[in-house]
Write a protein that binds this DNA or RNA. Structure first.
Lengths: 353, 353
DNA sequence: CTGTTAGCGCCTTCAG
DNA sequence: CTGAAGGCGCTAACAG
């Protein structure tokens, strides 16, 4: 009897075992195999045949074909995650990690698809995902902003992450940037600073305006005159922070604290400040925004900043998606951006003239 | 006749139209619908019925169920992309973008799944993907290194990106780090520098050793004594670059060029150099490695560095996967790391004592 | 040029 | 406690 045992293993790359194969080997029907594999079917299987089936499954290295299963059950245990730009942004990583963990823990697979900003591709990708019958869709955009979503999104439970649509027809999760801006300012206000500079980014971006609003809020609440605080506009790049800081220094006695629209600008500020012989935080305190990985905590001195809740947003989104609660969600849900105090903030220098 | 036309549209969230529905509406069989939809079946359909079918498809907003199709054809037009750590690393973004573009252009969907380094999860995720019958699998790891892959990878055409296995049983695409290290050194050697410092990372990492080897290679080829060049060991973080540079400056007359194991260390070097009142590149030239997005090109002065071929690796991998050429691949394929000269390298200062 | 028949691999009544 | 029958939505022979 040649090959009785050997042939039981899949001949590497050959046809995978099917449920019927398992049944045959165990001497039962495919139905029975299905019952033991799916447990809780309200069915009862004798411990003995159960074991025989399990043995056969192991022997054949059987794994159910999820396409067939999905076809039958109309559930794929799949969450689609579409980004408009997976890019190098740290954004995606944390969000995806959070969403993946929750999804996986609940028995679903998060499949990430990076589209581009190209409307056509975006639409086609969403359609494709729906054709594959994902159970729900998370649509993530990198910079918080209003977006136009593919029509097809209405054909499946969908949720927007970091983006929002006009009519509020799709629920969104967003970072609470206003509170974040306040938190950033509070970091230096609490340390006793009264003369601040704020290096902001493009006014066309929603986060820019929200953070700035938060900043002004905090300044007013602290009893300071917002008009006394200088606001310089840049573009979120490190070199822009560098330039703006140089302008600041050239303009006269520098403020005692420089708040930046993001960590990269803060990095530019660091370079300009050090070049000018100013010490951080003894002479000038600096605050960033984003708590960017490998940057904020690693520069010298470590940068005080505000953290984006990307990981939490990912978790939250996946949670709603697997729980099937998307239809019940409010239009917008804001998650907090907590302050992260580090070494770059200290008390203002004694002589401020 | 109520609702003849209205009811033809899917009642939002209701059952999606099936091929049979389309056939019924068009007055043909499902088979015919299949033929017109899949074109090139060697079949011929009268222009007239063709149009009727197409109209019905449009009217019902019909889209084929890819699970059913996959079940039948045993092809899913899906490439699986598994990472052990999607993290914040710029790595993932570029690689995925490259792979996605190629896959999509060839009619396949790249689905990215972020696993963790946890062996168990990794194995389960790969199994899951195979259960979903992906046509091929790209297994990507973030730091180039030898890895142990899930057994299941043998059940599907698979390819390693940035990682390699012991026996060479799975083909790999890797960055040519040795040549990259050489290129980095060449950047300053060509400018006339002879006294270099190399700030390296952990010796336990393969890229560290490869880059360093390339550096030494270039130094020897340039006719310099490798023992004259100081090599300091750090850990790839910005603060480590900062510390090492301070050590360098404290130890005596600094070298005229500082080569760094990566861009983040170069950033640390920038901070320390500026703090010490040294100008880049007038007093000291600096070279990084990685050409990290939002960093290398944006610091002041712009950092000369070496680019990792992540995008290209992604493209290459997807290319092989969709072309079905994985079985024919050599054990290892190296892609070049080109030098990116910028402002941080200049001629050595006249007086070097 | 078009329709019939027969599954792909699984789950789910409904009978034994 | 277990099996037979039927069908999810699609494609691929094979007939007309």
């Amino acid at each position: 009897m040649p090959g009785t045992d050997e042939d039981a293993r899949i001949p590497a790359g050959h046809r995978r075992a099917t449920m019927a194969d398992v049944g045959r080997l165990a001497g039962v029907s495919a139905t029975t195999v299905s019952f033991v594999l799916n447990e809780k079917s309200g069915q009862t299987i004798s411990e003995q045949t159960r074991q025989r089936v399990l043995d056969a499954v192991a022997a054949l290295d059987y794994r159910p074909n999820r396409m067939a299963r999905g076809l039958r059950t109309k559930r794929t245990a799949t969450l689609g995650f579409v980004t408009d730009e997976i890019g190098a942004e740290p954004f995606a990583g944390a969000t995806i990690a959070g969403a993946h963990e929750v999804a996986w823990a609940q028995g679903s697979l998060l499949i990430v698809v990076s589209a581009t900003r190209d409307r056509r591709i975006l639409t086609d990708v969403v359609d494709d995902l729906i054709d594959r019958r994902v159970d729900a869709l998370i649509f993530a955009v990198v910079g918080t902003r209003r977006i136009a979503v593919p029509q097809a999104l209405k054909g499946v439970p969908a949720l927007l992450l970091n983006g929002y649509v006009q009519g509020g027809l799709l629920p969104s999760v967003l970072p609470d940037e206003v509170a974040g801006g306040r938190a950033a300012a509070q970091l230096v206000l609490d340390a006793g600073h009264t003369r601040l500079a704020y290096l902001t980014g493009q006014a066309s971006l929603w986060p820019t305006r929200a953070r700035l609003r938060g900043f002004r809020d905090a300044v007013v609440r602290a009893g300071l005159d917002p008009h006394d605080q200088v606001v310089l506009r840049g573009n979120y790049r490190a070199d822009s922070g560098y330039e703006l800081t140089r302008q600041l220094l050239a303009a006269g006695p520098p403020p005692t604290a420089v708040l930046c629209g993001n960590d990269r600008m803060a990095l530019g500020a660091y370079l300009a400040l050090k070049e000018a012989g100013l010490r951080i935080p003894e002479d000038v305190s600096v605050v960033g925004y984003d708590d960017q990985v490998d940057l904020a905590a690693d520069v010298h001195p470590a940068l005080s900043t505000v953290r984006m809740p990307y990981y939490q947003m990912g978790r939250w989104a996946a949670q709603q998606a697997v729980a099937g609660t998307i239809p019940t969600l409010p239009t917008r849900t804001y998650l907090p951006c907590p302050p992260v105090p580090r070494a770059s903030v200290g008390p203002p220098p004694p002589a401020t003239a």
